[in-house]
Computed example of a mutant assay.
Amino acid sequence: MSAIRIEKVVTSGTFSLDGGTWDVDNNVWIVGDDSECVVIDAAHDARPILDAIGDRTLTQILCTHGHDDHLGAVTDVLAAHPDATVSIHPDDRMLWDAVMDQPPTGALTDGQQITVGGARLDVLHTPGHSPGACCFRIADEGVVFSGDTLFQGGPGATGRSFSDFGTIVESIRSSLLSLPPETVVHTGHGDDTTIGDEAPHLAEWIARGH
């Protein structure tokens, strides 16, 4: 069996919501082995994502949430891999439907297990940044893909529609900070962090919201 590969591709584009548009760089994560993989958040530009997939079989695109900067390359990646599926949590369908012409082909649920290339990804529903936000944990590799739920320095943004600060802090507390402290957090934007680096700041985040 091939070893698990975790690769990061950074793509650039814009994020638009509530009438505003901002320039952003997104982390796209490709997880699998030498024969098959999944893509976590097909953002902005399909070309570097397809280059990273190479000649492997793409089984799924997994969406951490439905903001448009995380969905921009979905259509083009699927066009190149028509047998792959794309999944998002149903609570983010209103965000998906605002920018996508076709419905997703799969629905993510809390506790769901997704296997690819010998790796098992556990789905963690972590609402707050958006109602359907999800993280993906690979326990055997000691990593979690946090999307925009947890960053180096604290929770993701909650100042826009469909987001809530109290909800995201509770999601992080209950679903992420309970993971082993050495767990590496692969984020949706910016640098990695660890659960151990972020956990001591929970009280500060709570105070920030009051």
Rank of each mutant, 00 (worst) to 15 (best):
D92H: 04
L177S: 04
L177Q: 08
D191S: 12
G128N: 10
L17S: 13
P180N: 10
Q113M: 10
D101W: 02
G118P: 07
G190F: 07
G128F: 06
I114F: 01
W22D: 13
I61C: 09
T57M: 04
G188P: 03
N26L: 10
G154C: 06
H201M: 12
L124E: 02
T183R: 09
F162V: 09
S130L: 12
D140P: 00
T167N: 12
I6G: 03
G32W: 12
W22T: 13
F15P: 00
L108S: 00
H44S: 11
Q112S: 01
I114W: 01
V31T: 05
T14G: 07
T64G: 09
I206A: 07
G166L: 04
P104W: 05
V143P: 03
L78I: 07
V116H: 04
T194L: 06
L179S: 03
G147E: 05
I53S: 00
I61T: 11
D51W: 03
C63M: 14
A84M: 06
S175H: 01
A52M: 02
A73K: 04
A107D: 00
D83I: 00
H210A: 12
D68F: 09
S171H: 08
G188C: 09
I114R: 01
A133H: 15
T194P: 09
V77P: 04
T194M: 06
A3S: 14
F162L: 14
A119Y: 01
L179E: 06
M94C: 15
A79W: 02
F15N: 12
D164E: 13
P131N: 05
V31K: 00
G196Y: 15
S87P: 00
H67I: 13
T187R: 06
I53A: 01
Q152C: 15
